[in-house]
């Protein structure tokens, strides 16, 4: 019966937290969460079938272009989007900026993304997410980052990818690394699990749970560089349970059509015929960035490990 438990027991979470926070994230599965910068875009996303929107002032591609310090969005702008749609509204805080998180909770944002896309506020600590009633999503590049964030209280994990590039290569790398990390725990004995827990800097109970169940104890989504229906399907086939699309929709030629296509691509991620159909005549995708042209400092995924 243990493996049939939809909401797993996770060391460090109370049952109440688990059901309410993880249960929210379970409802987003098989769906697309879209970055939007105003109520009009939010409505386009909702009509296209987005299961949630991420409210932010600038999409990652513009944050990358503009430079400077990227912070949490204006509460007025978030409230405008909350009024405009009936689907969940998420918003981002800087890594470690627990006050921005307190403010988003006070605004009853449905989910908080502690995101490397914004300029980190703390180079040593992430937000302690457990005291919050609001579920958090955090990015990861590998199993260690994922488990550290879960141990801090994240109710959902997403790949970091390389946001604002329209290039899916990093999201693929992060998802493969994460899944390989999970598989590598299979069959380890107590001594090896303890060594692994020490290496990953998380409690051994958490590592043991993943070793036994061969999955993360929270939903595992994908983000960072998804620009086409095929990209979205690729991430789903690699093991993602839902997909975040940032700049890829509203930086493209026909956002409404592309949004509808990506929603359908996630539902039918394993049906190439549907993927062919939805990929026809989508217009210009966002202009991508070749990652070789980015310096180490320009890589957002290096933030908050």
């Amino acid at each position: 019966m243990a493996n049939h438990h939809p909401i797993p027991q996770v060391p460090g979470f109370t049952a109440e937290e688990l059901v309410s926070k993880i249960g929210f994230c379970e409802q987003l599965k098989g769906g697309v969460i879209m970055d939007v910068v105003d109520p009009e875009q939010a409505q386009i996303a909702e009509e296209a079938g987005a299961c949630a929107v991420m409210a932010l002032e600038r999409v990652p591609a513009d944050i990358r272009k503009d430079g400077g310090v990227a912070r949490a969005s204006d509460p007025d702008m978030i409230a405008g989007i909350q009024k405009a749609v009936s689907i969940p509204v998420m918003a981002k805080v800087r890594i470690g900026h627990f006050v921005e998180a307190q403010m988003l909770e006070a605004m009853e944002v449905d989910c908080i993304d502690e995101s490397e896309v914004l300029t980190p506020a703390d180079e040593e600590f992430h937000v302690d997410k457990r005291p919050f009633k609001t579920p958090f999503v955090c990015g990861c590049r590998d199993l260690g980052e994922a488990l550290r964030r879960i141990h801090e209280g994240a109710a959902m994990i997403r790949t970091k990818g390389e946001a604002g590039t329209g290039n899916v290569v990093e999201a693929v790398r992060h998802m493969r690394t994460l899944m390989n990390g999970i598989r590598s725990l299979r069959g380890l004995d107590g001594t090896m699990l303890a060594k692994k827990a020490n290496e990953l800097r998380v409690p051994v109970e958490l590592v043991a749970w993943v070793a036994e169940n061969q999955k993360l104890p929270v939903p595992n989504f994908s983000a960072g560089g998804v620009a086409t229906p095929a990209d979205a399907s690729l991430m789903m086939q690699l093991g993602a349970e839902a997909v975040f699309v940032g700049s890829g929709i509203f930086k493209s030629g026909d956002p409404a059509k592309r949004a509808r296509a990506i929603v359908r691509a996630v539902t039918h991620y394993d049906d190439p015929k549907v993927l062919v159909e939805v990929s026809k005549g989508l217009g210009e995708p966002m202009v991508g960035i070749n990652l070789d042209t980015l310096s180490e400092e320009e890589r957002l995924a290096r933030r908050g490990i």
Binding site: Q27, G31, A48, G49, A52, R260, V263
Partner: peptide, 13 residues
Amino acid sequence: GGESTTMLRLLAV
């Protein structure tokens, strides 16, 4: 469970 707007749109499509 899930989002009813998403399901309605896909039911139609």
